[in-house]
Design a binder for these strands. Structure first.
Length: 528
RNA sequence: GCGCUCGUGGCUCAAUUGGAUAGAGCAACAGACUUCGGAUCUGUAGGUUAUAGGUUCGACUCCUAUCGAGCGCGCCA
């Protein structure tokens, strides 16, 4: 819709135009502050320039009204314009907002270590990632999601050790010494008993078995993580193993050497990351010959870029922010364009329950399990609440709020709007196909505003994806639902003179709500 | 100490990325049901945008300093 307005305006104004949503709906549908930026150049007052522009555009048939107010040029679209668009939305729900993008994107997210179940912080990144994924798909991008499994390194060994010791304690009734940094929590006990089931209790008698236990425990944890993700409707296109990656280490290393990106000092291999904006150089191979965690990411990103996408997006926990410079410098040293990688940080989450800090479950060890929260409030509410906030700010929320069934719970509020519409349409006995051919001719101002807001969905989605700001979609849906409720209270639809028109309007609103919710990962309700 | 992120009504968050009178929800108070589902709606109240300067037609947004919060500053992952 915006695109079309741009095209029209290009005919009249030979300048770069910025279209905005007016502060107040009564000004019009679109506005541009173009007169302000021209003011300096033309050495005239913005008000006069705006007036002149208005005179130039005023006869455009697609615009019902063009006005200049305090230097802003405001545009109101014609009903024919809105009508055509609304019919399109009704007939092409799944393509509403889709356009040819011709862009391949690789999205990496979650990538939590397979050493335990997902906690609430992981959930935020996961939901953010999946929502961006769904939106990108809907908009027409070719996007692939990937989970990087950290299955190398000593945290896996630590997992195996933890299971081994707990097995000794719980199953063999020994009293082993637990070092401080071992994994705790109920899930380790579960793992121990599963291990005993699979390999027999004697496996805990010999330390030599730890490697076997590690591997088994890691696979089990990965399955558990997948289940956690499924509980909020997330599936990945692919999984990549760090261990597998290391087989390609020599390739990446050769590349780094060729680009003189590494040097040896104190028997260790260093990456010259400080040359690319990092605070200092980083070790990639230890003096014992073991590659570091960074090496894994060097190979992984080499591998990613070899696969030749147009854009790479990583979603990391906020505690990784110091890591960005390192990885970007590695990408540059490997000979790629590091600006193709965008890293989004997802901030910490603190949960409240009745105003008090949420009690961490014993099962979890020392963090809040994602599955506990999903069990308590459900996937829909959790997904929605995580998306109502910018990902880079801390988030506090009270779990009790999500259980309420009134306007304080946005999911109910939005679903109720959708259900209301469908009840009205059902009651009218009309079907959507016949409604989509109705022409708008007698909508009043509030009806037209509602229609316009509903048709704004594609713009919102583009915005959300470009800025990686899903809170705008959540906000949009709340506002749209609010406008609908308001409209509903002031207009009787069934039996009105323009009943069919109003039904078409409502059906259009329902499309936007339904599509918006679907992209957030929520199935809209037809009845409540 | 250094770096990154952030600071907006009592609470949780917005603000079209430098634009029009800083907006929503919750909580509070006052109203609307012989209804196309009141799981809703209408209204009132609440702000020196942490503080102090600066940049310009114009600042919550950009710059500088100060205060405060979180995170990072491993050859852990």
């Amino acid at each position: 819709m915006k695109k079309k307005v741009y095209q029209i305006l290009e005919k009249y104004i030979d300048e770069k135009i910025i279209l905005e949503k007016p502060k107040d709906a009564k000004f019009g549908h679109f506005a541009t502050p173009i007169a302000f930026s021209l003011a300096k150049k033309l050495r005239k007052s913005p008000m006069i320039i705006a007036d002149e522009l208005v005179n130039k555009i005023i006869d455009e048939p697609n615009f019902k009204e063009v006005t200049a107010i305090k230097g802003f040029v405001n545009i109101k679209l014609s009903s024919e314009f809105l009508d055509e668009y609304s019919s399109y939305a009704l007939k092409n729900e799944n393509k509403f907002g889709k356009s040819d993008k011709n862009k391949k994107i690789l999205l990496e997210y979650v990538s939590a270590n397979p050493t335990g179940p997902l906690h609430i912080g992981h959930a935020r990144g996961a939901i953010l990632g999946d929502t961006l994924y769904q939106i990108a798909r809907h908009l027409g991008y070719e996007i692939t999601s990937e989970y990087y499994i950290n299955d190398a390194g000593n945290q896996i060994e630590m997992l195996g050790n933890s299971v081994f010791l707990v097995g000794q304690e719980e199953i063999l009734n020994l009293s082993p010494q637990f070092p401080d940094e071992f994994y705790r929590g109920e899930y380790i006990k579960d793992l121990a008993s599963k291990t005993a089931q699979k390999f027999g209790e004697t496996i805990f008698e010999d330390k030599k078995n730890i490697e076997k236990i590690s591997n088994f425990a890691k696979d089990e944890m990965l399955e558990l993580i997948k289940l956690n993700l499924q509980s909020v409707n997330i599936e990945f296109d692919g999984f990549v193993s760090e261990k597998e990656m290391f087989k390609k280490w020599n390739n990446s290393l050769t590349k780094l050497e060729k680009n003189s990106a590494v040097y040896t000092k104190d028997d260790k291999l260093w990456l010259k990351s400080s040359e690319c904006g990092d605070e200092k150089d980083r070790v990639v191979v230890r003096d014992n010959g073991q590659p570091t965690y960074l090496a894994g990411d060097v190979i992984y990103h080499d591998d990613k870029f070899k696969r030749n996408y147009d854009q790479y997006i990583n979603i990391w926990g906020a505690d990784h922010h110091g890591y960005i410079a390192r990885v970007k410098s590695a990408i540059k040293f490997l000979g790629y364009d590091e600006s193709q990688l965008e890293v989004i940080l997802s901030q910490m989450v603190s949960l409240l329950k009745d105003g008090e800090p949420y009690k961490m479950s014993k099962r979890a060890g020392n963090f809040i399990l994602m599955s506990d929260v999903v069990d308590e409030v459900g996937s829909d509410a959790l997904r929605f609440i995580f998306l109502t906030k910018k990902s880079d700010t801390h988030l506090d929320f009270d779990i009790e709020m999500l259980k309420k069934e009134d306007s304080s719970n946005p999911v109910y509020y939005i679903n109720y709007a959708h259900a209301r519409i469908n009840q009205v349409i059902a009651k009218s006995g009309k079907n959507i196909e016949s409604l989509s051919d109705v022409k708008f001719s007698s909508l009043d101002e509030s009806a037209e505003n509602l229609l316009f807001n509903a048709l704004l969905l594609p713009e919102v989605l583009e915005d959300v994806f470009n800025q990686k700001a899903p809170q705008k979609l959540a906000d949009y849906l709340k506002t749209l639902a609010g406008s609908l409720h308001k409209f509903y209270n002031s207009h009787k639809v069934i039996g009105a003179d323009n009943e069919d028109e109003l039904l078409k309007l409502l059906a259009t609103v329902a499309v936007s709500i339904r599509v918006g919710l679907k992209l957030i990962g929520i199935q809209a309700k037809y009845k409540m």
